[in-house]
């Protein structure tokens, strides 16, 4: 019997890891205590950060990868996977996170971009990446660069779900519009989307993105989370929405419940009762052009 050698960091292992997150909630945390609250509430993974996005907005300046000491502290506190963010294009921050053995790297527009032309070549890494996208073309470009998971960008740190909805509808709608097209028409569409034609065809055949697709950026309540699931998300990221609410532990648990029972309004009623204050939130229209995060990277 001839046995094939051991292989690490394959596409199957990266996408497989993302599949294990499906139906789950990934929560932003800034310390070990928050990480434990998230795990206790039923989060499938945590995102280790220096500040949650709403606080990044307030702090201003250049937002960078979190301090390795903070990430290590969080990794030591929980047994669920730990993810962390790097700046768009900052492949050395990504090398640092891989060396720390973070389970997934988020190449994120929430941090200040380090490269305005190129995203990270994610195929060079053993650790899988998740990347943000606002439309199908952007999602497929990231997948082509090696992203194992996509999250619709929304507008992070606003507690306002409107952009998350816009981006999820855009991606799902563009995939629906591909179905029934001839190969020639799909090639034409691929040029317009600035995306590889093979990936466009794969979307049309499967009726979805070729990788797991979560929703992010503005989810602040159980109903927000359930709405994103009904719109076709495989799961949700919740950033500022949990630890800037008045009762993080209850909010975390309620959002986990709502993601699981996303099609059951009665269960969402139960999850939403007596939660205290959700995070305050921002009107997207009052943000100046420089304050909008979703336009970073394309």
């Amino acid at each position: 019997m001839k046995l094939e050698e051991l292989r690490f960091g394959t596409e199957l292992l990266k996408r497989g890891f993302a599949s294990m997150q499906k139906g789950g909630v990934i929560m932003d945390v800034v310390n070990a205590d928050q990480a434990r609250v998230a795990e206790e509430a039923g989060a499938v993974a945590v995102m280790a950060l220096e500040r949650v996005p709403a606080d990044i907005r307030k702090a201003g300046g250049v937002a960078r990868m979190a301090d390795p000491a903070r990430i290590t502290e969080i990794m030591g506190a929980v047994s669920i996977p730990v993810m962390a963010k790097v700046r768009i294009g900052h492949f050395v921050e990504a090398q640092v996170l891989e060396s720390l053995a973070v389970d997934m790297i988020d190449e994120s527009e929430v941090l200040t971009p380090a490269d305005e032309q190129f995203h990270i070549d994610k195929t060079k890494f053993t650790v899988p990446f998740v990347c943000g996208a606002r439309d199908l073309g952007e999602a497929l470009r990231r997948i082509h660069e090696g992203a194992a998971m996509i999250r619709t960008k929304g507008e992070a740190g606003t507690g306002n779900v409107v952009e998350a909805v816009r981006h999820m509808r855009a991606i799902m709608g563009e995939i629906r519009a591909l179905q029934g097209k001839t190969r020639q028409e799909m090639a034409d569409r691929a040029r317009a989307l600035e995306a590889p034609v093979e990936l466009v065809i794969e979307c049309a055949e499967r009726g979805r993105l070729p990788v797991v697709n979560f929703s992010a950026g503005g989810i602040a309540t159980p109903s927000d989370a359930a709405m994103m699931m009904q719109l076709g998300a495989d799961g949700v990221f919740v950033g500022s929405g949990i630890f800037l609410s008045s009762n993080p532990s209850r909010m975390a648990r309620a959002i986990v419940e709502a993601v699981h029972h996303y099609d059951d309004p009665k269960a969402i009623v139960d999850a939403s009762r007596d939660l205290g204050e959700a995070m305050k939130g921002l009107d997207i229209h009052l943000l100046s052009k420089e304050e909008v995060l979703q336009t970073r990277g394309r």
Binding site: E4, L12, L13, P81, E98, A101, P128
Partner: peptide, 12 residues
């Protein structure tokens, strides 16, 4: 170990 150590292998 963690995700970095995830692997594919032929198994008898």
């Amino acid at each position: 170990g963690r995700q970095r150590e995830s692997f594919e292998q032929d198994l008898p």
